[in-house]
Nucleic acid binder design. Structure first.
Lengths: 246, 246
DNA sequence: TCCTTTAATAGTCACTGTGACTATAAACAG
DNA sequence: CTGTTTATAGTCACAGTGACTATTAAAGGA
């Protein structure tokens, strides 16, 4: 910025802006992409579902605020929130997006594995946090439906050219589970052997856990276990099929 | 956002934030990638170079502010600014990025052709706007060096999987000029026939101008002219070479 | 025990896109 | 006319992928 004709040094020269963060946290559960939502306890939109988030404090970056709000508002365990891969999505700044005052919101996206605890009660406040499948997501407060749609599209395309799909998996997983992540997020069906070949020939995408295998729910040949590798980019990309099969 | 324990309805409950926009506007000129910079007339950083930008007004979105500031601060013609493809880069929110007060800045990126006028004087204010090559960019005010580096990397990767390179070209251009854009932005050398084949076989990347040709500065065979096509994405992408040749 | 089902794993084949390279065409300078 | 420069045309081999077939290792039922 630069104050050619700006307010100079007086912080109160303009009606102040509030700056908030909003989070679109995704997981894959039971063949459906889920998003973490909270139920609002206050006006406006009291009783509505919304993305978790909140105000950025005066001495805090947006990234720090996102992590703090996520820990406060949702029941996500500390170590999960601290290690989480948070990515800025974009900033939403339409003048009337909040009826109370001028609020500019920095939106973030995060991917987490299917957590055992279904996001318990929030930390003291009367907020209720829940995983809801995207298919049956209710109306959301503010412009959160737009943010959620943007975040979903970002995640879908990120799977194409990054190794982020493993973020949806537990520390050790089978290639069948990784395949299920892709099929769920893209809502498509992939060829199993070709998917295998692509993942295994991409250096650093996954690393075999020596000797380990897991029975896949009782039926079928036991699958080998893998861990996420050090690679982050997928060169060349793994493109999703065009036409809408499935 | 949502005010579980937030400031509720009192806009003055917190020390206010200012929200600004910063623009990284690029062009290709004389074999070098250039960025549009202004020289600051005010403290802090008076006399330093900075990215163009300024405060978001109370009833204005960040996108609108970016377009307005660009028109006000730089000598860019109206119709250029109005038609410009502006893309959000990301938002910078570190608490001390501005010594005066808490300022959160939404950064944008734009690509323009090499304009005949080298960005004349700003609109009345004593700001001086100039195109400077990235190689010899001076120290920048605030965290603008970081923003500029992020924007440059965004542009470099955007050329891989979008058709945006034509935004650097005049309305009608030769494939040699388009090639020069890629070679300049990526700082590499590409194989001419292969580049041709890629561009011409990608539907909608460019459209031939029937019968038109241009003598390429006197020497060599005249080149056919093309216009930007309707396509925006490049599937499959045109990947830059890995090792640093040239 | 044998046979069927299920899912993982192995391998084959053709096609597409690309990197590297050679050849021809059309302008200008001397 | 000859050499230089740049645009354009075409060739060849190889990597990556889509579509497909085959084999292996487990569970469950007859």
């Amino acid at each position: 910025m630069n104050g050619a004709a700006g307010p100079g040094y007086d912080p109160y020269a303009f009606e102040p802006f509030a700056v908030t963060v909003d989070l679109a946290v995704f997981t894959v559960r039971g063949g459906a992409l889920h998003v973490l939502l909270i139920r609002r306890g206050q006006e406006p939109y009291a009783g509505s579902w919304a993305l978790p988030g909140g105000f950025v404090l005066p001495r805090e970056s947006a990234e720090a605020a996102a992590r703090r709000e996520l820990a406060e508002e949702t029941g996500l365990p500390e170590h999960i929130v601290a290690a989480l891969h948070l990515e800025q999505l974009r900033t939403y700044s339409e003048p009337d997006r909040d009826p109370r005052m001028r609020v500019v919101s920095v939106a973030f996206t995060a991917l987490v594995p299917d957590l055992p605890e279904p996001a318990a009660e929030g930390g003291g406040d009367a907020v209720q946090a829940r995983w809801l499948p995207l298919g049956e997501a209710p109306d959301l407060a503010f412009d959160h439906a737009v943010i959620l749609a943007d975040a979903r599209e970002r995640v879908r395309s990120k799977l194409e050219y990054t190794c982020l799909a493993t973020a949806f998996c537990p520390p050790e997983f089978t290639l069948g589970e990784l395949l299920a992540v892709y099929e769920t997020v893209w809502d498509t069906v992939l060829d199993r052997p070709n998917f295998r070949r692509k993942v295994l020939t991409t250096p650093g995408f996954v690393e075999a856990v020596p000797g380990a295998a897991r029975l896949t729910g009782g039926r079928g040949k036991p699958a080998a276990l893998y861990r996420a590798g050090p690679a982050t980019a997928l060169h060349p990309p793994l493109l999703r099929p065009e036409g809408p099969p499935r």
